[in-house]
Design a protein around this nucleic acid. Structure first.
Length: 275
DNA sequence: GCTGCATGATGAA
DNA sequence: TCATCCTGCAGCA
């Protein structure tokens, strides 16, 4: 279930478990055997994430770049690890911890130029602190929007515009900011663009903290605390086609946008809202 | 047990 | 716009 918050959680947990250690690396599946050999026995110096991309740096080797795509996942075992399945692309282990990676879209060793090119085409990540990026990320996001004629609902999935949002966050962020998903990105006004950025920061940070995506304000479902919400109460519109909007009761709408299904409330996000 | 879908992204047509 | 990569699992029989 990898949207940006999951990737940053992996970065944090791998940094804590593997950082500073010499790592044994292998590829039971075989597809990454050559790459694993390049980092096998090296010391891992840092792990960081940008959007949905993970970067692992080593002493004496180039960077390991991982992108989970839709299916990829890590499993971490601190004791009695089960043997890796034949599909395990990569194993990273110390004496105490074993990390298994399966199903990634990308698992590769990249040189500094390739990494630079990759990072250059990623938009600002709401989870990356401002000081590390130089220019103000909220402004960069607003500028990116102003240069796109595609609907805002498509722009939020474009990782060059903003890095880290996936299909759930796009639907929920647009609902929370009351923006019509069909509005061309360049027509989103400054106020709504900044609101979208701030909302993304809030939602993603909460996701990193809790490990799951919860966007609902507790009062909207008659609960006291966010942690009390049941599994079917955590989102406003995602996958809720035809069900009543939690704010106004209007049936939630649904349409394909940018190859992915999008849900929204036609009353809380009326045509043209956000401009 | 089987089918089809999924929180992603790319490359061909 | 579509097909494809690749894995896990919900939903159904």
């Amino acid at each position: 279930m990898p949207e940006g918050h999951v990737i940053h959680r992996y970065a944090r947990s791998h940094r804590a478990a593997l950082g500073g250690h010499r790592i044994a690396a292998s590829s039971p599946q075989g597809r990454f055997a050559v790459g694993a050999a390049l980092i096998d026995g090296r010391r891992l110096t840092s792990v960081d994430a940008h959007g949905k991309h993970l970067f692992y740096r080593w002493e004496g080797a180039e960077t390991l770049h991982v992108h989970l795509g839709l299916y990829g996942r890590f499993r971490i075992h601190r004791s009695d690890p089960p043997p890796p399945t034949p599909a395990t692309r990569l194993v990273l282990s110390t004496d105490e911890v074993v990390v298994y990676l399966s199903g990634p879209t990308i698992c590769e060793i990249i040189d500094p130029a390739a990494e630079e090119a990759l990072r250059a085409r990623l938009g600002p990540d709401p989870l990356v602190p401002k000081r590390r990026t130089g220019l103000d990320p909220a402004e960069a996001f607003a500028t990116n929007l102003s240069r796109r004629s595609i609907p805002i609902g498509a722009a939020l999935l474009d990782q060059r515009v903003i890095a880290g949002l996936g299909n759930i966050y796009r639907a929920e962020a647009l609902f929370l900011t009351g923006i019509d998903p069909h509005l061309p990105a360049q027509e989103v006004d400054q106020e709504h663009a900044l609101d979208l950025w701030r909302t993304s920061v809030t939602l993603l940070r909460r996701g990193v903290r809790s490990g799951r995506i919860v966007t609902v304000e507790p009062l909207d479902v008659g609960a006291k605390r966010r942690s009390d919400l049941g599994p079917t109460e955590r989102l406003y519109v995602y996958k809720r086609y035809g069900e009543p909007c939690r704010r106004c009761g209007t049936a939630v709408m649904r349409a394909d946008m940018a190859n992915r299904m999008l849900w929204w409330c036609g009353a809380c996000q009326p045509a043209g809202a956000g401009s």
